[in-house]
Design a protein around this nucleic acid. Structure first.
Length: 217
DNA sequence: GACCAGGCACATC
DNA sequence: GATGTGCATGGT
């Protein structure tokens, strides 16, 4: 059993299932993935509530909504002008390529779809992979700031290495299992929030057993 | 008041 | 290819 598998088992035992992604529909996952870029989830929840209250949490509704109205509704999520444009770009792509249907998008070849998502304005590797894994249930591992930080703290890979380098590590070490990837990434985020911020709390972290003994602070 | 949060596009070297 | 900057709200 490799180290990444053991870290997963350890986190799952300690923290338990995270039940990601918190959303009612695949489309809502995608919207949330764009809005949570460099933003705490609590603020995204407010924005999603605003959209729902305005009757706008669907591809058609958001496609027809004026961009300035969209921006004002998602204001609590921050970067609202930028994100309104990014949401519009994704929805235009969803409309033109899949007639507004996440289900039709799901039937696209995964590798090809990833390339297409990456070509949409405002969708980078993490957002694309979040949509693939959490909205479309494809076995693609999502790398985020917490994942990089935790692996870097454990000297498994330097934090400044590229997104793809981190992702390759997981794809090589683990079975391509959607449920496993779902849970593992969510556990990294949960563990990162609690134990691995700028001021780490390694003494309380379930992963401390994987640290060199000189670094357990 | 500083720092941070489930990134990305764009400019510049 | 690597590095720097703008985007913005809300919590600690």
């Amino acid at each position: 059993m490799n180290r990444l598998s053991m870290m997963y088992e350890t986190l799952f035992e300690a923290i338990g299932p995270q039940h990601w992604w918190p959303a009612d529909t695949a489309f809502e996952v995608a919207v949330g993935a764009i809005m949570t870029q460099n933003t705490s989830w609590i603020n995204v929840e407010r924005a999603i509530r605003n959209l729902k209250a305005a009757g706008g949490m669907g591809p058609r509704e958001l496609h027809e909504m004026p961009i300035h109205k969209l921006a004002s509704l998602i204001r609590p999520a921050g970067y609202f002008n930028v994100k309104a444009r990014r949401l519009k770009s994704f929805i235009a792509f969803l409309m033109s390529s899949y007639r507004g249907s996440m289900e039709r998008m799901k039937h696209e070849d995964t590798g090809l779809l990833r390339d297409k998502l990456l070509s949409v304005h405002g969708i980078g590797p993490e957002t694309a992979d979040s949509i693939l894994l959490y909205a479309l249930e494809k076995p693609i591992f999502v790398i985020d700031a917490y994942t990089k930080r935790i692996l870097s703290r454990h000297h498994i890979m330097d934090q400044r290495k590229a997104y793809g380098d981190f992702q390759a590590l997981f794809h090589a070490a683990l079975e391509k299992d959607t449920q496993l990837f779902n849970e593992y990434h969510a556990l990294f985020v949960a563990a990162g929030k609690t134990y691995c911020k700028r001021k780490p709390r390694c003494e309380a972290c379930p992963l401390k057993m994987f640290l060199p003994s000189t670094e357990k602070r």
